[in-house]
């Protein structure tokens, strides 16, 4: 086992080699700055300024975007945090993110391992399995709303044939959760699959051959060669997906509106509802800011627990 692990790590470049400072680095400093400038400008113009603006709004009371805002300090935060609805939405969001990220990662790794097998027509099958990733959200929602339509959907028709249902997929509390989680996982697993598939391709066949000579069976090869290679990717993917899923608004909003009642309402939806439906711009932006702070904190802890080798 020890030998195996050593072989595996030899295939990877040592981390120190990554940052080789060229002798010309100093001379080219201006060039580097020029390379960085457009991205930085774009980031500042289209990202930092809007974020700061939105955060600033969270310290004001305003009923609409055309209303004259009045400064209330931390008032919005105190008010929002004291509402049970906020904490309900918070835990809904945690549940949604944990469930969808876990399922995406498990399914993603599974499908990636499957598609990594050698067989005829592999490329075509890969494209097919990864296809949901490239669909626009709006299309995904329409297609699934149609598939899961309570009266005319193919799913309920099938269920009725076997004597179940019909199920109201978007308005029975349990079914609504199932629907948004299922569709989210269906839509975003391919991204995870692609990334893992790419990582699998970095493992050289020699490694497996050597392991086979050492007498390692398929399970051991998976545990000792494959998974260690996937680990750094896994760390980044879980982080990216968690940020993404905790903040995911459109799928949930378009499918259930956070309903029935507030059953599937998580923080991004509550932020939207406050801002646009309850005439409380300050409250809405305070919630958005709290999401932001929470995620930043989460990521900081995350990288502290799982430091990436590169940094």
């Amino acid at each position: 086992m020890v030998t195996l692990r050593r072989t595996a790590s030899m295939a990877l470049p040592a981390p120190q080699e990554v940052f080789r400072v060229g002798p010309l680095e100093r001379r080219d400093r201006k060039l580097f700055l020029a390379f960085l400038a457009p991205g930085a400008l774009l980031g500042i113009g289209a990202l930092f300024i809007p974020v700061l603006y939105a955060i600033q709004l969270s310290f004001f009371h305003a009923e609409s975007f055309i209303d004259e805002p009045t400064f209330v300090g931390l008032g919005n935060y105190i008010r929002v945090f004291s509402e049970p609805r906020y904490w309900e939405a918070f835990w809904h969001g945690v549940f949604y993110a944990v469930a969808t990220v876990a399922l995406q990662v498990i399914l993603g790794i599974g499908i990636a391992l499957l598609l990594h097998q050698e067989f005829r027509g592999r490329n075509l099958l890969r494209s097919a399995a990864l296809a949901p990733y490239i669909l626009p959200t709006v299309v995904v929602v329409y297609v699934w709303k149609w598939l899961l339509n309570v009266n005319y959907g193919i799913f309920n028709a099938f269920l009725e044939n076997v004597g179940v249902g019909p199920i109201a997929w978007f308005t029975s509390p349990m079914a609504a959760w199932f629907s948004i989680i299922f569709v989210s996982v269906w839509y975003w697993t391919p991204f995870v699959t692609i990334t893992f598939l790419a990582a699998l391709q970095t493992i050289s066949d020699d490694l497996y051959d050597a392991a086979a000579v050492d007498g390692a069976n398929a399970w051991k090869r998976l545990i000792h060669i494959t998974l260690p290679v996937l680990k750094p990717v896994l760390i980044v993917i879980v982080m990216l997906r968690t940020i993404f899923m905790f903040n995911k608004f459109d799928i949930v909003w378009l499918m259930t509106n956070g309903g029935p009642l507030t059953t599937t309402e998580h923080l991004p939806i509550l932020a939207y509802v406050k801002t646009f439906d309850m005439f409380d711009i300050g409250g809405g932006t305070a919630i958005a800011t709290s999401i932001f702070v929470f995620l930043a904190l989460l990521i900081w802890i995350y990288f502290w627990v799982f430091p990436l080798e590169e940094h």
């Binding site: 080219d28 960085l36 980031g43 608004f249 958005a288 932001f292």
Partner: peptide, 28 residues
């Protein structure tokens, strides 16, 4: 530039960009 230069604050910048994903899109 990020890989080959060693200007200070590089990685901070990249990470800061991740904030793009942390704010609800509609409010941005």
């Amino acid at each position: 530039a990020l890989v080959r230069s060693r200007l200070p604050g590089m990685m901070l910048m990249v990470r800061a960009m991740l904030f793009a994903y942390m704010f609800p899109a509609l409010l941005l």
